[in-house]
Amino acid sequence: MRPRRAAQLAVVLAAALGVPARARWRRAPAPPDAMAALARAAAPEVSSYAGRLRVEVYGQGVSEPRELRVRFQAPDRYRREILDGDGRVVILIVSDGATEWIYDKSKGKVWEGEASGTGQRQFGSQDALELIRANYDAKVANGPKVARRKTWIVSLRSKADHKLKRRLWLDRKTGLILRSEEFLPDGSLSSSMAFSKIAFNRRQKEAAFRFKPPRGAVVVRRLEPDPVSLGQAKAASGMDPRLPAWLPPGYVFESLDVLPRGGRNIIHYRFSDGINVVSLFQCPPHVRLDLGPKAGQTVQLGSGPGVLEWTNEGEVLGWSSGADKFVLIGPIGSSDLERIADSIR
C-alpha cells in the first residue's frame, strides 16, 4: 500500500473511532538547543532513580562488559553494585554524600574515603560547558528509546580534528544520560554504557546508602590528595613544578594537587577540554615507577627514552627528565602525549 493511501485510511479509521483530530498527526518534537541539553545532562532533574546498566570497555579489540545495579537519591547519595556473570555482587560502592566506601568481597577489604567528586575539581559545570562550547560542535537529534525512555542524541565532534568524541542519549524528561559512547582519537570505541532498566522518582530506602564494614573486613583509608597552589606544591614536594608549554587544542590547566605516597609527595596536574581529562604526574627522586607487568613500547623523547602503554583509561607515557620522573595519562593519541612530554622544561 502506498504511504499516501495508508495515511488516508488512517484518517478515516481515526474519525470512525472518535479519535480527536489533533492526535491523529503526532509530529516529533523539535530537539532542544544542544548546549541546553548538555546543561541538563550535567545537572539532571531527578530526585531519585534505580536501574540496571551495562558498561563495556574496549581494549585492543576485546570488550570487557560489566553489569551494574545502581540507585541514586538526590542530591548526592548513590549505590553501585558491580555484578558477576551470575548476578552476584562482587564489588559494592556506596556513598552517603560525605563518605564513599568501596567493598571488594573477594578480598574482604573496604576502602573508605571522601565521596567521589567532592573537592576534586575546580571546574564547575558552567566552566566545563563553556569549554565544550569552545572545543566541540554539538548536535542534537531525536533518538531511539533506551530502557523504554524517549531520548535525545547529542553528538560531540571535536573542532580540532572533526572527529566524533562522545555520543550521549539523554532522557527527554530528566536530562539523565541513559546511554553513552566514548571514542578514541583514532575513532574507535573506547567504552560504552547503557541502562537496560530504570525507574525514576521512587523513594529509595535510606539503608541503601549506608554502609557498615562486614565483620572481618579490613578497612583502609583512601589517600586524599589536597588541592594546592603551585607554591604549595613546590613546598610540599620539594620539586620545582614543571608545567608543559604545549597542550592539545582545547585543553586548559584545570587544577593540581599533591598525592602522598610512602613519605614522598607527587604533584598531580590536571588538564581538561571540558569532556576529557589529561593527568600529568611529577615524581621526586627516589621514586621508582612500576608501569605493570606488560612490556610497554619504548619511545624516544627529547629528554631520553620513555615507555608507552595502553590502559582502559587511555594511553600512558612514563619518562625521566633530570632527577624527576613523569607520567602522562589521557585519552589522547601517543603523538600528543609525546609532544606534551617534550614541551616540559
Binding site: 548538555l38 545532562a41 550535567a42 545537572a43 546498566l53 558498561v55 563495556e56 570497555v57 551494574l68 545502581v70 567521589s116 567528586g117 576534586q120 575539581r121 571546574f123 559545570s125 566545563a128 560547558l129 565544550i132 562522545r166 550521549l168 544520560i177 553513552s180 566514548e182 567504552s191 560504552s192 554504557m193 589517600l223 590528595p225 584545570e254 598525592l259 598531580h268 590536571r270 581538561s272 569532556i275 576529557n276 581529562v277 593527568s279 604526574f281 583509561e313 595519562i329 589521557g330
Partner: peptide, 15 residues
C-alpha cells in the same frame, strides 16, 4: 587518581 578526576567531570561516563 586520574580516574577520580574523570568521574568528577560534569558529563563523566558511567564507564
Amino acid at each position: 587518581a586520574h580516574g577520580d578526576c574523570v568521574r568528577a567531570m560534569p558529563l563523566a561516563p558511567e564507564a
